[in-house]
Design a protein around this nucleic acid. Structure first.
Lengths: 122, 122
DNA sequence: TTGGCAAACTTTGTGCGGTAAAGTAAAGGC
DNA sequence: GCCTTTACTTTACCGCACAAAGTTTGCCAA
């Protein structure tokens, strides 16, 4: 049982830094729950981001191949439409699995009663 | 039901940026699962961090009052010992709750079969 | 007894990247 | 016709993560 975990069991190096950033985590979570895609203004509101901020993060997500961006015109207004790619969905779910692992690690190790910390032999 | 969520439902602004950083998340997860505390070398190995990197993050965690650092001498060697504070535990668990919320949001919105994204009316 | 090597950190420097502020463009009222 | 609003993009700053170099102390070997 002890041999199962490598010594660096808490390294979490699978935590994709592109996704891990708060604003981008927010955007991607929006997009994965809205597979039809979302417009710029929708994302801006849902994620509570400023225009520039969102624009920048969308660029990062696109160059990482996590989202697709299409620009069309709606009611003679520019309209930027974003949706998550298949690869993006895959990588996002892998990222989520790491988050679940973190939670599992904590739940497994939490001992609420040991305020003196006298347990946990090694 | 729709009125329950604010418009910025995916903002996750409770995601504490001090904790969210990968290295620090790693360190804190180590410490919360080891309430007796851990030494510098232990943390370094478990979190797969370099000396300088760990040192820096420990300073940040301490000035945020999330951990206590005590320096004693063990076998006439300096020994830095870290343990999570009560406040640190509280804030870490609040952070974890946000992660769980992210997962819940995704699970609630995920529709694995809609590869064409034709469902989800609004 | 000192010279080197290693353990255990700390300090310094650099570059990336998140954020905000300013800029652009076009529609639509007044 | 100008001023505001929507819808973004670009630019600039600055804080922070990371790594590389520095420091201190102990131990072994010659």
């Amino acid at each position: 049982m002890r041999s199962r975990k490598p010594r660096s069991a808490f390294a979490y190096d699978a935590l994709d830094s592109v996704i891990h950033e708060r604003a981008r985590l927010s955007v991607l979570t929006c997009l994965i729950t809205h597979p039809k895609g979302l417009g710029f203004a929708d994302l801006k509101t849902m994620c509570a981001l400023t225009d520039g901020n969102l624009s920048r993060h969308l660029q990062v997500l696109r160059s990482a191949k996590l989202i697709d961006i299409s620009k069309d015109v709606d009611h003679s207004r520019p309209h930027t439409f974003c949706r998550i790619t298949a690869n993006g969905r895959k990588r996002y779910l892998e990222y989520l699995a790491v988050l679940e692992q973190v939670i599992k690690d904590v739940v497994a190790g939490e001992k609420p009663d040991t305020s003196d910390g006298a347990q946990v032999p090694a």
